[in-house]
């Protein structure tokens, strides 16, 4: 969930565009007028000029790497005891090996378990807070303060956050000290030595970092719903929970779907928090090792063939999920 950071405002823009049925792809007004203008043709050349930086940088730093990643996945190519093996063409051999070893399924399962454990409370709390913030009847005070606070964890460096939780939840750390002195535990609990407590810790940190973002996203969606619908329901005597279930939720469906899928894409990238918290080991017993930690290991060991195969599989999954989002967007845009 690390690289999503700079995506939020656009996500929200996209989310509200979903709600309002606006088209992201619509041509600007004045298009027709510009076409009639002969002079405009020479101006329009500038469209290409202005695109040059983006295209050049994209080709060099994203497109070529994508191609070489795929290319590398067809070769045996690694370092073993300081000796270079390969590159030898292996066809789909790396994929076969990856799937036969089966480790990737373990790490995919870990990633998904921790994602779900963080995402379910996240979406529930976000729906609740979003509904409260956008409820005109409730008129909550200090809204700016609350929004500021819940958004704060999202901006915290995940590496620092992982480090902080590692220190706080250490066997002799402050959390254990508090829990023991309150009499909840008789002796310090080894949070990072138990499979489920370690997973819960990571899921909780992801939850903490992302629920503020999701709340603001959903709130923007809820504010986009025609208020007369709520008024009509109130006149008919609906309670606020009925209004939420019968009006807000159904109308929010495109945004909800959008939130689920973007969060899933982010969840598949889960790396910084478990990496720092467990020092890359995925302890205990690899139960918190995620897909990207697995990929990172291959990259660090310079096993390019296997790293390529893991990357390509992840790319395919993300691409499928992205296409779903793209479809949702263009469907609601029509």
């Amino acid at each position: 969930m690390s690289d999503q950071n700079n995506g939020k405002p656009a996500e929200q823009a996209q989310a509200s565009a979903l709600m309002q049925g606006k088209s992201g792809a619509s041509a600007p007004d004045g298009k027709a007028a510009a076409r009639k203008n002969k002079k405009a043709v020479s101006y329009n050349r500038w469209g290409y000029y202005f695109l040059i930086p983006f295209i050049v940088v994209y080709l060099i730093f994203s497109f070529i790497p994508l191609c070489t990643t795929i290319y590398n996945s067809f070769f045996i190519n690694y370092l073993a005891r300081m000796k270079q093996v390969g590159p030898t063409f292996d066809g789909l051999g790396r994929y076969v090996k990856l799937l036969q070893d089966g480790d990737i399924f373990v790490y995919l399962k870990n990633t998904m378990i921790m994602w779900i454990m963080g995402f379910v409370p996240q979406i529930l709390l976000s729906l609740l807070l979003g509904a409260w913030f956008s409820d005109p009847q409730l008129r909550l005070k200090f809204q700016n303060f609350f929004k500021t606070v819940i958004y704060l964890p999202n901006l915290i460096m995940a590496a620092a956050f992982g480090m902080l939780f590692f220190a706080l939840f250490a066997d002799s750390g402050p959390i254990n000290s508090i829990l023991v002195s309150l009499g909840i535990f008789k002796e310090p609990f080894k949070f990072l030595a138990n499979v489920w407590s370690a997973r819960w810790l990571i899921a909780f940190m992801n939850f903490l970092m992302w629920f503020g973002n999701t709340t603001i996203l959903l709130m923007a969606g809820m504010l986009g719903i025609d208020p007369s619908l709520f008024e009509a329901a109130q006149v008919d005597g609906a309670t606020s929970s009925q209004i939420f279930r019968m009006i807000t939720l159904p109308l929010l469906r495109p945004i909800l779907l959008y939130v689920v899928i973007t969060s899933l894409i982010g969840g598949l990238q889960m790396f910084d928090v478990p990496q720092i918290l467990t020092n890359g080991s995925g302890a205990p017993m690899n139960s918190t090792k995620t897909l990207v930690m697995f990929l990172n290991e291959y990259l660090k060991n310079k096993n390019y063939g296997m790293a390529g195969a893991v990357s390509v599989l992840m790319f395919i999954v993300t691409a499928i999920l992205s296409i779903i989002i793209f479809r949702i967007n263009s469907r609601t845009n029509k």
Binding site: D3, T68, T69, V292, L295, Y304, G308, S311, F315, T318
Partner: peptide, 13 residues
């Protein structure tokens, strides 16, 4: 939506 992680190998090389 393509995350930088999936092209990290090619990028690194």
């Amino acid at each position: 939506m393509i995350p930088s992680q999936v092209t990290a190998l090619g990028f690194f090389r």
